[in-house]
Amino acid sequence: MSNVENILAHPVRETVVPAPRPKITAEGAGVRFGSVTAVEDFTTTIREREFVSIIGPSGCGKSTMLYAIAGFLKTTSGVLKVDGEPIVKPGPNRGIVFQEFVLFPWRTVLRNITLGPEIAGLPRAEAEERARKWIRLTGLGGFEDAYPATLSGGMKQRVAIARALTCEPDILLLDEPFGALDVQTKNYVMKDLQDLWIAASKTILMVTHSVQEATLMADRVLILGARPSRIVADVKIDLPHPRDPADPRLGQYRQEVTAILSAEVDRSMKIERSR
């Protein structure tokens, strides 16, 4: 996208700052639904401006953890903090993007994106001003007055991303954001998201089941094990951004993550069969 290239020409950061402040801290955090333990003993620290991906076999509770950090679900054990404060409810410092976009069909693209500032009580003009910046950066210019029903999947996901970013959150939580997109669209949106992340300097936590997505985009990949799930590996992807999908070093990381993940999937299959 050419509009993002402008920002790329003036990157905010060239190299990773040595040790940014911890943004999200989890100490033995767990979520249980009745007698079912979705996640347990989730312990990690996500630093400011870090891009962390959570990956795991399906049904491993990775989205559950993301929702707990968003404040939609309550943890049943351990501690979960943002900026040193325990998470008690959702807040505008944490933006969310869902797999199925979850746009509001009765609002135009512009009105979907201005929703956050509207709720924050900003005057309409100021809300639109803020929205326009992200409309431009996500390549949605010209679609402001369209209703979501008329957009393609990729465009819808851009609206969802712009909507989350217009609230100017410190943290962006992505729940399988490319899961509902076709391969071509996915590659475009993925590239844009990387560029946006570099330009916007946000902390991003992304849940995915795709090794390729996780290794291409994240600084760190947390691998969750089978139910009851906990972190089985924390792989640091030590490559500069933006990354080239054809980079052979990336291929090695992919193999490494795939190997750990396959072992976990095998284990979970065995558990399921022995039941």
Binding site: G71, F72, G91, V102, F104, W106, L115, I119, R163, C167
Partner: peptide
């Protein structure tokens, strides 16, 4: 569904915001 409600809650929306901006238009 819950996700549209979550979107508004994550923007700091109150119960009234949820009713006014999600539940009423969604059930129209």
């Amino acid at each position: 569904g819950t996700q549209p409600v979550w979107v508004v809650r994550s923007m700091g929306g109150s119960r009234l915001d949820v009713l006014r901006r999600v539940l009423i238009p969604a059930s129209l």
